[in-house]
Amino acid sequence: MDRFSDFFISKVLLVILIATLIFTASSSSMMLFGILSVIAFLISKERFYVLKFTFFAVFIFSFFVAFINGIFIYYLTGHIDLTQQIIFVWRSFVLTYLTISFINRFGIVGVFGITKEIRLFIVLFLAKKELFIRILKESYEAAASRGMNTKSFSDTLRLIASLAVTLFHKALLLSKENNLALRSRGYYG
C-alpha cells in the first residue's frame, strides 16, 4: 500500500508540474511569471540556494541568448521589441525555477517516480565517477612523483592513454565485484 501510494503521489506531482510548465510556456503574462516565481520560492526547501542557483544557471544564460537574439532581430527588422526579449528571459527563468524548486521539495524520486533499479544505477554511476576521478588524480600525482613532466603535452598524453586501459580494466573488475556484493547483501533482482 505504501509503495502504491508513493507511486500515485509521484504521478500526481509529475502531472501538476508538467501542466504548470505547459501553461507557463504558453503564457506571456508578467504577472503570472511573478506569481509563479513567488510560488517556486515558497516551495523550495533551500530557498535562497535554489534561487541563486537558478539565477546563475539560467537567467544569465537566457539573458545572453536574448541579447544575441536581439542583435539578429535588429539586423532583420531594424528595431528591437524589448518587451518580447524580457518575456523570453523571464519565462525561461520561471520554467527552470519551478522545476528545480519542485525537485528540491519532493526529490527526483518524488517528482519523477524513479524506480529502485534506476536509483541504484544513478548511485553506482556517481560512485564510479567519484572513484575514477580519485584514481585519475592519484595516478597523475604518482606519475609526477615518478618523474613525469606534468607540463609536457606528450608525457601527459602518454599517461592518459595508459590510464584509459587501466581504468577500463578496473571498471570491469569493479563491476564484477559490485555484482557479487549486491547479491551478497541480499539483492535478488
Binding site: 548511485v123 559490485n178 556484493a181 551478497s184 541480499g186 535478488y188
Partner: peptide, 26 residues
C-alpha cells in the same frame, strides 16, 4: 529460489576486501 536466497543471505553475510564494491546508496 527467492525464499532460499533470502534465508541464506540472512544467515550468512560477507564483508568484501574491496570495500568500494560494497557500497550502493546515496
Amino acid at each position: 529460489k527467492k525464499e532460499n536466497f533470502v534465508n541464506f543471505r540472512k544467515e550468512c553475510s560477507l564483508l568484501f576486501q574491496n570495500i568500494d564494491a560494497m557500497l550502493f546508496s546515496e
